[in-house]
Write a protein that binds this DNA or RNA. Structure first.
Lengths: 262, 262
DNA sequence: CGTATACTTGATCAATGTCAACAAGGGTGG
DNA sequence: CCACCCTTGTTGACATTGATCAAGTATACG
């Protein structure tokens, strides 16, 4: 029984609660002190595009703090295919702090650099720096929230809905990494990477982008450069809200086959 | 450019690396000391079946350590539908330690009890107990791994594959919670709960169970009581391995499923 | 024992995966 | 600087699968 509950109004469509910047502390990322503490025991590494930072099953032993660039983490399935698990932007922390071996592989999508933090040294620091421990716990919870969003994204059955959510997710990530609200967004990953992440075929992703552009929600300047031109419509897709009377410009994302010869 | 397509044989089909019990420490869960430290500042609460432990958007403030019973956590979408995010078994820790408000809701599937740990007290303890902090970090990473598995599960396009993975996941959870290898498994959640979790309609879940039983992979004693009768076949489904000239039924996987829409 | 709930089974339809070309872009080398 | 080529991305057609609507059956609980 689909009890059509009324929309829980609260801001522009919820999703996972945006982090309310607890207590006015640092919005995101580590404090300067914490960052310094980590840098003190870390080595800095630069990497080129396409480089593997680490591979699943390699013994772990390090935590990684991304300084520049974009790194994707992914799992390799028994049949050889891969599933994108996360995209990391500057200031993101990835790798296992506690596990024996890496559960995922990490690959650079664009050139960049990172801090490589040895776990033993980290543990030593943690014993005398409870604050850093709390900071790490917070970062882990942040990542957990990211995964929740990813989970919800994958829960969507329709391709455009997934891609719409992905766009929102990407915007959030880019925005927090470099706190700019530039209109143009860049996709550092290929359609295939996106497909892996959102659980669709790359063709479906391509079609979804095309549809979003056709409906005036996105505008592409190049294959990987675009901007959101109708944020309300995008949010409606994310919220899975049918174009109610509330919407002035009604774009019907589905149900109308574009060039469907079917 | 990865030239995949070749099965990376290694053990009985991988998935996410099973935690290799690092250094011989406690296999899972907190040490007795850590548990005691938490119990000292916690209040104990019993709950009936169906009770809401907390709801999304409620202000957080507590961490929960499950003592008995099973608790599911889920997110409520703007349209009112829900998505299962996790099932918690005894010894699992849930709730937010750092967030201002709960991102999820939690509901008891069967009667049980839990420790309710106030965050402020927890932080106070953490400042003098770095070991506990490390333990919590490990638990968080455990949860992160659970989410990876869930992510991979949702990546599967075919219903039986998803359900097969769910079974494996459930077995793992039950097994670690009460370290028994009893042949019969109990499903503490409804088909609807499962559907929510695996991202399928409850009918699809029902059909998948029927199919698994028909193929002799599962055997049901009751709607919610069953045992795995052909573990190899189950693993083959999970690994997405084509039936090696033995199975009459052909299983062709897809990528993703269609969905609600409206 | 009876009713509400949970679960199963059936039929139809829309959506995506897959296979297959094709177009566009970026980079390399002459 | 231009031609060429390989990779990336787009578009098309069809088959398969699960969502949906709709009954029907078993189970739990009072």
């Amino acid at each position: 029984m689909p009890s059509n509950r009324r929309k829980l109004s609260e801001g522009p469509g919820l999703w996972i609660p945006e982090r309310p910047s607890l207590g006015g502390k640092q919005q995101r990322g580590l404090s300067d002190d914490d960052r310094a503490a980590l840098a003190a025991i870390a080595s800095t590494v630069s990497f080129a595009k396409g480089v593997q930072i680490f591979r699943a099953r390699d013994k772990a032993g390090h935590l990684y703090l991304l300084l520049q660039g974009v790194v994707k983490t992914y799992a390799t399935l028994p049949d050889g295919s891969t599933r994108g698990v996360g995209f990391n932007f500057p200031d993101d922390l990835f790798g296992s702090a506690a596990e024996e071996r890496h559960a995922l592989s990490a690959e650079a999508l664009v050139p960049g650099s990172l801090h490589k933090i040895p776990i033993p040294a980290l543990e030593a620091v943690l014993r005398n720096n409870a604050g850093l421990g709390l900071a790490l716990i917070r970062r882990l919870e942040d990542r957990l929230l990211d995964q929740h969003r990813h989970l919800l994204l994958l829960g969507r059955g329709d391709a455009v809905g997934r891609v719409a959510m992905f766009i929102a997710l990407l915007e959030r990530m880019e925005r927090v990494s470099r706190s700019s609200h530039a209109p143009w967004l860049y996709l550092p990953m290929s359609r295939s990477d996106i497909a892996d992440f959102v659980g669709l075929s790359l063709e479906a992703v391509s079609r979804a982008f095309t549809a979003l552009a056709r409906d005036g929600i996105l505008k592409f300047r190049a294959k990987r450069h675009f901007q959101v031109t109708d944020r309300a419509a995008l949010q409606a897709l994310i919220d899975n809200t049918p174009p109610d009377a509330a919407k002035p410009r009604a774009k019907r994302p589905r149900r109308t086959a574009p060039a469907p010869a079917g």
